[in-house]
C-alpha cells in the first residue's frame, strides 16, 4: 500500500534511527512511502498553545499536501510520532467540525493552490500495523520471533488521550495496540504503572526536575516489573526516556539501564533486520538486554540456537 508519509521533525533531528528504521521496515511490510517533504512541523501542541489558527492552518496545509498524494494513489496519510498524531488529530477535529472555520483556513492556503477536504485518514504507524496490515499478517511475516523478550509498552500521551479525539472504541481499542503488536511479534508484554503516562518531555526546560522524575519513575517501574526494554511510537518520549536517561537516573537516585526501542525497530528485529540496520547502536542506553551483539540475535536470555528461535511461543497473557 502507498501512504503519504509525514516523518516529523525529531525523526530527522535527534532520533535519525527512527526515520531510518521506518525506511528499512516499510518494504518488508509492503508499505510504499511517499514522503511529504514540503510539510512542516505539527506544532507538537506548543504552536496551538501560541495560536490555534496558526497550528490548524499549517496542519491543514500538510493534510492538503497529503490529499494531493492521495489523489495519486496513496491510501492514507501516515505519521510515526504519537505527538504528531495528537497535534494533527486536534487540528483535524476543529477543521472537520466546522465548515466555516475550514473555509477560513482554506482561504489562507489558497495562494499555493492547496485546499483541505474534510475527513482525511491519518494514522500513526502503530494504527496502520493493526488496522491496515493486520496482526495476523504481521505475525506471518515474523522471521525471528521475539521469544522471551519482555517488552514494556510506552504509548505517549498524545496517542491515547483524549479518547474521543483519538477515536478509541470497542472495535478499535487503540490504547492496547502496542501490547497486541508485541504479542504478534512473539514477545512478552510487561504491564507496569507508567505505560500510558507522560514521559515528562514537554516541561524539560520549564521544570527539569519534575520532567526527569516522570521519565525515571516509569523506567524504574518497568525495571521492577522485569522488562528487558520499552517500546514507544513517540520519538519525543524517546528523547526523555533514552537520551535523558542518565540524568533521570540521577534525579530518581537509582540505576536504570533500560533500553528504549522505537516501534519500527522492534518490528524490524522480528522481521529479520539486523540491529545495525535499525540504528540500535545509536541509542544512549545500549540495548544489550535486547540484542546479543556477538550473534546479532534477538535475545532476552543470551544467544539462541535455531531451534529455540523457531519453536517460539507467544507469552504475555493479559
Amino acid at each position: 500500500m502507498k501512504v503519504a508519509y509525514w516523518p516529523g521533525c525529531v525523526s530527522r533531528g535527534f532520533t535519525p534511527e527512527l526515520h531510518g528504521s521506518v525506511a528499512a521496515v516499510a518494504p518488508l511490510l509492503g508499505i510504499e512511502l511517499v514522503e511529504l517533504d514540503r510539510a512542516c512541523c505539527t506544532g507538537a501542541g506548543v504552536l496551538a498553545e501560541h495560536s490555534q489558527e496558526l497550528a490548524d492552518t499549517l496542519n491543514g496545509r500538510t493534510f492538503a499536501l497529503a490529499q494531493k498524494e492521495m489523489a495519486n494513489g496513496a491510501e492514507l496519510m501516515m505519521n510515526i510520532c504519537s505527538t504528531c498524531q495528537g497535534a494533527q488529530s486536534e487540528s483535524q477535529e476543529r477543521l472537520d467540525a466546522n465548515a466555516e472555520y475550514r473555509a477560513h483556513v482554506n482561504e489562507t492556503l489558497a495562494p499555493e493552490g492547496l485546499t483541505y477536504e474534510k475527513g482525511i485518514s491519518n494514522k500513526n504507524f502503530l494504527w496502520l500495523l493493526v488496522e491496515e496490515i493486520g496482526l495476523e499478517k504481521l505475525s506471518s511475516l515474523v522471521e525471528r520471533p521475539l521469544t522471551d523478550l519482555k517488552v514494556g509498552p510506552f504509548y505517549g500521551c498524545y496517542i491515547v488521550r483524549p479518547a474521543d479525539r483519538i477515536q478509541i472504541t470497542d472495535e478499535r481499542p487503540r490504547d492496547t495496540y502496542l501490547a497486541l503488536v508485541i504479542e504478534a511479534l512473539g514477545g512478552t508484554v510487561i504491564e507496569y504503572a507508567g505505560s500510558h503516562k507522560c514521559c515528562g518531555f514537554p516541561i524539560i526546560t520549564m521544570n527539569t526536575d519534575a520532567s526527569l522524575k516522570q521519565a525515571g519513575m516509569h523506567l524504574g517501574d518497568a525495571a521492577d516489573a522485569d522488562a528487558d526494554c520499552l517500546v514507544t511510537p513517540c520519538p519525543l518520549c524517546h528523547l526523555n526516556l533514552d537520551l535523558q536517561q542518565p540524568l533521570a537516573e540521577k534525579v530518581v537516585g537509582r540505576p536504570l539501564e533500560m533500553p528504549v526501542l522505537h516501534l519500527p525497530q522492534l518490528v524490524g528485529l522480528a522481521l529479520g533486520l539486523s540491529p545495525k540496520e535499525l540504528g540500535l547502536a545509536r541509542h544512549v542506553v545500549k540495548p544489550t538486554s535486547v540484542i546479543d551483539w556477538t550473534t546479532t540475535v534477538v535475545a532476552g536470555v543470551g544467544a539462541q540456537d535455531e531451534e529455540t528461535v523457531t519453536g517460539s511461543s507467544v507469552a504475555g497473557e493479559k
Partner: peptide, 23 residues
C-alpha cells in the same frame, strides 16, 4: 523565570525559520 514564555516563543520562531523543529 520558568522559561515558559521563552520556550513557546523559541518554538514558534524555530518552526517559522526552519519549517521543522530544530531541537
Amino acid at each position: 523565570r520558568n522559561n515558559g514564555f521563552n520556550h513557546e516563543h523559541a518554538f514558534v520562531k524555530n518552526i517559522r525559520r526552519n519549517g521543522l523543529l530544530h531541537e
